[in-house]
Design a protein around this nucleic acid. Structure first.
Length: 807
RNA sequence: GCCCGGGUGGCGGAAUUGGUAGACGCGACGGACUUAAAAUCCGUUAUUCGAAAGGAUGUGGGGGUUCGAGUCCCCCCCCGGGCACCA
């Protein structure tokens, strides 16, 4: 029989609201647990990814509540961003109205899932009471030299008409719209995340429980590399430049040097090079190439000889200096020593342009042939003067480094791939950057009492090169807060990742009108005990937020090193082989399942279908199974409540089964193994079915045990039905019960099936008493299977498991 | 190329420290109930040989350690994700 889920779910959701089950008093200082699901972009409709995220989060919330924690579980909206603006361009609906309609719709849907959120603390990035403080924090960063404006070659999406962060360029294309990204020189705002490269990297070792893959993605992204930086002088000039290498041991193998076309020294080189016409042409060509073309590996390397020579600092050998765009301006020093004998890229280049190739490392068996391909492994130095015979990777490197540093030519150096975070966006629907260009004082932050700098009303959201905000004369023209003379406002808005880098701080004090947050509360509640969200945010959001918190710590706004202690990344839910998205038309709408199967069944299925960290293909059939389980559970409990009060012989095993289920579900919950937790409950339900098939009575104690354990254990997964059943038959609100505990003595079955092996192969099984000794087991094997210990060389006995006769 | 994951029935997936591989669910098949169907209930379901009893094979492939390997070690293949002309 189908139980009436719609009615029940509505009833309990109202009840939880009435008793304020989700409301958290953050002023308490004991037993706090901050459980956070990533706040969503308000796309308007909940998709299966959200359902998965918020179900996992709610399991944790309810489980931790039952363990006596004061759980904070807030929800809010990442509500700035492109879609609202694109919709405004298309339909004329104001982005604010558009966004808020969608938020309202989505909030309703989230509530139908039955998850507990403290809505009193709700935040929305686009709310002026929120972005006021985003601006405030930005000004603090600016005042502490952590925000700066600079001309820089930036990634420009030709379709979105805006700048993108490096992180938002995927294989040369825009992360959002897949259009081509080109390079452009623009004056842009940056946050100095690179100041924190080392700390962001080291923090990964000290952080709590994070998925390995996320840590490794962040490590890759930060891209630490240790080596040596040294100076190269251009022969017969006063010019010199630095190069960075991780292989100082190959210094004698340098047969040319390469400088990036964008290098600062290029103007001087052009003025003295005999080949300046060619170089100029080459530079212009490199500039016009897209980022992707430049980066493409398949592309053949190109370059131009400058005609100039540089001096190898260790032996004064003169080698040619080339310009080539395979050397990137924003890594290392933008120039390299080229060692074609021991570097693949230099090798390719040298082959193409017929440059000298010298071998300076030889392997143990002297078997390598540098004429075929470069040798990039370690070995022993040759052709390296006094250094011949040294091991390349240890003594060789160190000795050559010592020479360079002793002669003040170079030093040990660490470089990072991570670059500063570009946050300017030439878009309307974002947080305005609260800076003013004063004709006298230069760049000046808006005064704090004038915040927020409100988004102006404009008629036309379309942007060309300039941000749409530039269209509002009233907005742009203002007074300098310093000297009162005429100033012009910045017209760019911030990357929405700035909004999401601190929302979890605002939750704790979302109504505060005097400051972004209360430092005391933050320090007692952070780091967040459990953060849960999609693996797609492994780098961007998580790295930015970590940086933000460290920066705020250093300017004394809080005292926390890492925002997220434990992180859980759920896998993505796919449909028809690819990620669900509206544009692909492969969205499975959760809304329908609320009606047909109910929130409880949907929650249960999404937990049951796979380990939550795995990506998974959506499959309709499975949800029938979980609904079937809930129906059966309902029926079983109804029947069970009607059993007469009289103890039976089957009860002991039922009691054991309950204890085992408590033990197992608890263990699985602790390890985020929800799929197996659900299967434990299904198993237990089957036990109850078979008890009901055989018995018509049960003792009062066992009846109560079955109700309290089953409803309690099911409660985090499917809270409505478990609340209803417990209320119906035990007259109590299950949410008020503590998490159940098991009795150690009731976990073990009195008998087990002994596996009898001969030479490691299973031959027989026999049910015997738990705890049977080897001696007795051998006796049993003799009488049952005619196995005599004396006929075998050896007998291996593992208590309560196997006996193995070897002969 | 480098760095992380992962590979188990028709399918999703289970298997503390090495100890009965395939829990739980889906699907399929058979039966009960029904005029019939749906729903529900009961049973079967890794492959293969066999009428059966029973045997053999089996966790991507190949070696190894062990009384015993899905689990540990070495080599290889494939899939997913991240990074990638990073010097």
């Amino acid at each position: 029989m189908d139980y009436s889920h719609s009615e029940i779910e509505k009833k309990w959701q109202e009840h939880w609201r009435d008793i304020k089950l989700a409301n958290c008093d953050v002023s308490l200082e004991k037993n706090n647990f901050y459980n956070l699901c990533m706040y969503p972009y308000p796309s308007g409709d909940l998709h299966m990814g959200h359902i998965r995220n918020y179900t996992i989060g709610d399991v944790i919330t309810r489980y931790k509540q039952k363990q006596g924690f004061n759980v904070l579980s807030p929800m809010g909206w990442d509500s700035f961003g492109l879609p609202a603006e694109n919709a405004a361009i298309k339909t004329g609906i104001h982005p604010k109205k558009f966004t808020e309609d969608r938020i309202n719709n989505m909030r309703d849907q989230i509530q139908r899932l039955g998850s507990l959120y403290d809505w009193d603390k709700e935040v929305a990035a686009h709310d002026k009471n929120y972005y006021k403080w985003t601006q405030y924090l930005f000004i603090q960063l600016f005042n502490n030299d952590l925000a700066y404006k600079e001309d820089a070659p930036v990634n420009w999406c030709t379709s979105c008409n805006t700048v993108l962060a490096n992180e938002q360029v995927i294989e040369g294309d825009c992360e959002r719209c897949d259009s081509e990204v080109i390079k452009k020189n623009l004056n842009q705002w940056f946050l100095k995340i690179s100041n924190y490269s080392e700390e962001l990297l080291n923090g990964l070792d000290e952080i709590g429980d994070w998925p390995e893959n996320v840590k490794s993605m962040q490590e890759n992204w930060i891209g630490k590399s240790s080596g040596v930086q040294f100076n190269l002088k251009i022969d017969e000039t006063e010019l010199d430049f630095d190069v960075f290498t991780t292989r100082p041991d190959t210094l004698f193998g340098m047969t040319f040097a390469v400088i990036s076309p964008e290098h600062d020294l290029m103007n001087e080189i052009l003025s003295i090079s005999s080949n300046s016409k060619e170089i100029k042409k080459y530079i212009d060509k490199a500039k016009s190439k897209s980022e992707f073309e430049r980066m493409s590996i398949t592309k053949e390397k190109t370059g131009v000889d400058t005609g100039l020579k540089v001096l190898n600092p260790i032996n004064n050998k003169k080698v040619p200096l080339w310009v080539a765009d395979y050397v990137l301006i924003n890594y290392g020093t933008g120039a390299i020593m080229a060692v074609p004998g021991h570097d693949e890229r230099d090798y390719e280049f040298a082959k193409k342009y017929n440059l000298e190739i010298v071998q300076v490392i030889i392997d143990k068996d002297h078997s390598i042939d540098i004429k075929e391909k470069p040798y990039i492994e370690n070995g022993v130095l040759i052709n390296s003067g006094d250094y011949d015979g040294l091991k390349s990777h240890t003594d060789g490197s160190e000795s050559i480094l010592k020479y360079l540093s002793d002669h003040n030519l170079g030093e040990k150096k660490v470089t990072y791939r991570l670059r500063d975070w570009l946050i300017s966006r030439q878009r309307y629907w974002g947080c305005p950057i609260p800076l003013i260009n004063c004709s006298k004082c230069g760049l000046v932050p808006e005064s704090i009492q004038n915040l927020p700098v409100l988004l102006p009303e404009i008629d036309d959201y379309k942007n060309s090169e300039d941000s749409p905000l530039a269209k509002s004369e009233d907005f742009v023209t203002t007074e300098c807060p310093n000297c009162g003379s005429e100033g012009k406002r910045e017209t760019d808005t911030m990357d929405t990742f700035v909004d999401s880098s601190w929302y979890f701080l605002r939750y704790l004090d979302s109504q505060n009108e005097k400051s972004p947050f209360d430092q005391k509360i933050i320090n007692s509640w952070l780091p967040i005990d459990q953060y849960i969200g999609g693996v797609e945010h492994a780098i961007l959001h998580l790295l930015y937020s970590r940086f933000f918190v460290k920066a705020l710590r250093d300017i004394n706004l809080l005292n926390v090193d890492e925002p997220f202690h434990n992180l859980f990344s759920q896998g993505m839910i796919n449909f028809g082989g690819s990620k669900m998205s509206k544009s692909k038309g492969n969205v499975v709408d959760p809304e329908a399942y609320f009606t047909t199967h109910g929130a409880d069944a949907l929650r249960l299925y999404i937990l049951f279908m796979a380990p939550p960290s795995d990506g998974v293909e959506w499959n309709d059939g499975g949800i029938e199974g979980t609904k079937r389980f809930l129906n059966k559970f309902w029926d079983n409990m109804t029947k069970f409540s009607n059993l007469e009060n009289n103890k039976t012989n089957d009860e002991d095993s039922l009691v054991r089964s309950m204890n085992q289920t408590i033990f197992s579900v608890t263990r699985h919950l602790e390890k985020f193994e929800f799929n197996t937790g659900v299967s434990d409950l299904m198993k237990a339900n089957n036990e109850i079915s078979s008890y009901l098939n055989k018995n018509t009575t049960v003792s009062k104690e066992t009846k109560e045990l079955v109700f309290s354990s089953m409803c309690n254990l099911l409660y985090p997964f499917s809270p409505h039905i478990s609340s209803e059943i417990y209320d119906l038959y035990m007259n109590k609100d299950i949410s008020t019960l503590d998490w159940p505990t098991y009795e150690e003595s009731n976990l073990t079955n009195p008998t087990y099936e002994l596996v009898v092996q001969i030479n490691g192969k299973k031959k027989f099984t026999k049910v015997i008493n738990t705890g049977t000794s080897q001696e007795n087991a051998e006796e049993i094997c003799k009488s049952e299977f005619n196995l005599n210990v004396s006929d075998f060389k050896k007998v291996i006995f593992v208590e309560d498991k196997i006996i193995n006769f070897i002969g």
